[in-house]
Amino acid sequence: MNSDNFAITDSPADITPFDPTLKWSPDLVDYSRHPAYRGEIAGASAGLKGKALLQFTKSMLPLLVKRAIRYEMIPVEIRSPKTAGDFIKLLGAAGRNALGLHAKMPLDSAAQPVFDVLDRDGCCVVKMDEHCYEGLHSISRVHFARLEERRAATAKGDRDFDESRSNVDAREHGNDLYDELNRLLEESGILAAASRYLGRKARLIDVNPQINDASDSFWRTIFPDLEGAKLPASAYYHRDASGGDLKAIFYMTDVGPENGPFSYVVGSNKLSMSRLDDLIAEANDHNGLSSTNPDARRRFAALPAKLRQKGAFGNDLEDDAQLAEQIRKGVWSITGPKGSIVLFDTKGVHRGGMVVEGHRYVITTVIG
């Protein structure tokens, strides 16, 4: 890390880190007593149970392939081959991942502070100086302009999450942005710390400019059919349905308490969860059964109890639950000036920006 251009912001001292002895189990989210699910569980027909199980099974099979080849570790521009050469690159990357043909990286001493905080908390905040920020801001403006146009074409209050962000393809018009982000990730020590944390040489995989404002509704109305249902304190908290990569979020505007600060439950990267339970939760996040709309809830409730698990569990967690208490005590709501970089383990418990005032511009990057 170049200490002249980058500085680490530590987590607040009054936070109680996640209890590492708490082991994940399906019982941590009690669907049998939840008002949005208990009736559906009791009333599920045999036919609906069969349909739900089939939907789950059809999503699990491709997920197993993705995990075998560590799909999220393959750069986005390689995942969608357009030529025979591209397809060979995809097969090569998948094969290397499946066989674990990656050299372990020694940690540069300059990156040690970033790694130490990331390893301890699951999340680390690095602040870049004004000069670094201005360079990134200049290069990223064209990508945010495209996203602004796309958002303007959608109705306010009716946008889903994917309509708030875009993907930058390095093959088309993203080389300058990728180059600048790679430079910042290297100079800040983030890439070296990520390599040590992942146990392999890490690289920039995906780049997603994102804009959120108070008109976004994807996090607000979670049970649209239940009159009077209030937003739980743990709303939108989740673990990513991925193969265990890292993300780095670049704040491109100042982010205060009302501007949708990213939140992370400190130490939740150490949550003990079996590989089977993790796969079950990921499958339901991929197949749509983790949604809280009425149809998805009916099908989810029709699954066997062992399969009623989600990575996106926060919307279903009642405020008096043990896991909800762990989240409340351990959450770090990361406010900060533009130029802040939030590096985190996506398997820790976290949630993105829930903007209630103003707007938030960020660039979310995947490191794998």
Rank of each mutant, 00 (worst) to 15 (best):
F6M: 02
D10N: 02
S11G: 00
A13S: 12
F18K: 03
L22Y: 03
G39C: 10
L48Y: 01
Q55G: 03
T57V: 02
L63H: 10
R70T: 15
P75R: 10
E77M: 11
G85D: 11
F87H: 14
K89M: 05
L91C: 09
A94V: 07
A98C: 09
L99E: 04
M105S: 12
P106R: 13
P106S: 08
L107G: 01
A111Q: 08
V114H: 04
D116W: 05
G122I: 09
D129P: 07
L136S: 09
I139A: 12
F144P: 01
R150M: 11
A153S: 15
R165M: 12
R171V: 15
G174K: 09
Y178E: 07
D179A: 14
L181D: 14
S195P: 07
S195Y: 04
R196L: 00
R196D: 02
D206C: 09
N208D: 06
I211A: 05
I211C: 04
A214T: 03
R220F: 07
T221F: 02
S242G: 08
G260K: 01
L279S: 13
L279D: 10
I280D: 01
A283Q: 06
N284T: 15
D285Q: 08
R298H: 07
A302T: 05
G311R: 03
G314D: 09
A324L: 05
I334Q: 02
T346M: 10
G348W: 01
